[in-house]
């Protein structure tokens, strides 16, 4: 077997996304579109967190915009964003050669393994909010974490079987690496040789500024607290009605509403813990009910 070879570098941020999509489409993944709700991580898309439960086989890949209000930096930090993209892949059950498939996806976007140092460093992933954990690694490329690679073991507090392999690529970080750019806003969003070349900043900088101001200065905390309670009630009611999918949606809404409240620093650590526990109960409850329904249908 000869040494692995890298492909030509993509030309732009969108080219990198398209390359990953094509790569995983070739591997038999359904290419889904982003979930139409505010989430803090691509894992929370029902296509991952809920589909990891139950006995059915599943393969999907998608881009998921992620919102983390606390991470917003008014567009002033070259590495941190309140809104960014993750590329998410789930294969259930994980194929035996998933590590190879993953590495080839890096070669496909132009990372040359003969000059770059790719490493699998222990990192056990957990998301207590959805009662999920798994074992795997952070994947490092020259010391930079470019992906999270996880074999799910539990979701919603339940053992999963078969086991899913989950890959999360931090797209902006990966792109900055591939293009050798130190500032996220300088990334070429489309082909820099096209008629209207656009940078990541052209597309998102003003959004980051205004959203940061909203997250830290203008959000109405009292209103958000009411919203949180409403979402919580709706989610509980839906679960009581045996509808875990919309119940899960409202758990996500409650979660994002909490993240907005938290960004304002408006709650004490004790209150904070209580909010987190409430979101966890909603998400786990919906996930467990979904698992029960999936298991029954198998």
């Amino acid at each position: 077997m000869t040494a692995p070879k890298a492909h030509a570098k993509p030309k732009s941020f969108q080219d990198l996304i398209l390359t990953l999509q094509n790569y995983w489409a070739e591997k038999g993944c359904a290419i889904l579109q982003p979930y139409d709700m505010e989430v803090g991580a691509g894992t929370l898309h029902p296509a991952t967190v809920l589909r990891a439960l139950g006995p059915k086989e599943w393969r999907a890949a998608y881009v998921q915009p992620s919102r983390r209000p606390k991470d917003a930096r008014y567009g002033e930090n070259p590495n941190r964003l309140g809104h960014y993209y993750q590329f998410q892949v789930i294969l259930k059950p994980n194929p035996a050669n998933l590590q190879d498939l993953y590495l080839e996806s890096l070669y496909a976007i132009g990372i040359d393994p003969t000059v770059h140092d790719i490493r699998f460093v222990e990192d056990d992933w957990e998301n207590p909010t959805v009662g999920a954990w798994g074992l795997g690694w952070e994947v490092w490329c020259d010391g930079m974490e470019v992906s999270q690679y996880t074999y799910f073991q539990q979701v919603g507090g339940l053992d999963v079987f078969p086991v899913s392999g989950e890959l999360t690529y931090g797209l902006e970080r990966l792109a900055m690496y591939v293009f050798g750019v130190d500032n996220v806003y300088h990334l070429p969003f489309n082909d820099p040789d096209s008629e209207v070349p656009l940078t990541y900043g052209d597309v998102f900088l003003e959004n980051e500024r205004q959203q940061s101001a909203f997250n830290f200065e203008h959000s109405d905390v009292e209103m958000l607290k009411r919203w949180f309670a409403d979402c919580e009630n709706q989610s509980n009611a839906l679960r009581e009605a045996g509808k875990p999918l919309p119940a899960y949606d409202y758990a996500l809404k409650a979660s994002h509403t909490f993240n907005l409240i938290d960004a304002r620093g408006a709650i004490s650590p004790t209150e904070r813990q209580a909010y987190i526990a409430r979101v966890r109960d909603l998400a786990r409850g919906a996930a467990a009910q979904w698992a029960e329904q999936e298991g029954a249908g198998a």
């Binding site: 000059v115 770059h116 140092d117 490493r119 930079m144």
Partner: peptide, 16 residues
């Protein structure tokens, strides 16, 4: 590092 880079480690040092 875990590789003997073909460029003598220049790129990976820069990346790190």
């Amino acid at each position: 590092a875990n590789i003997e880079a073909t460029d003598g480690g220049k790129k990976l040092a820069e990346g790190n």
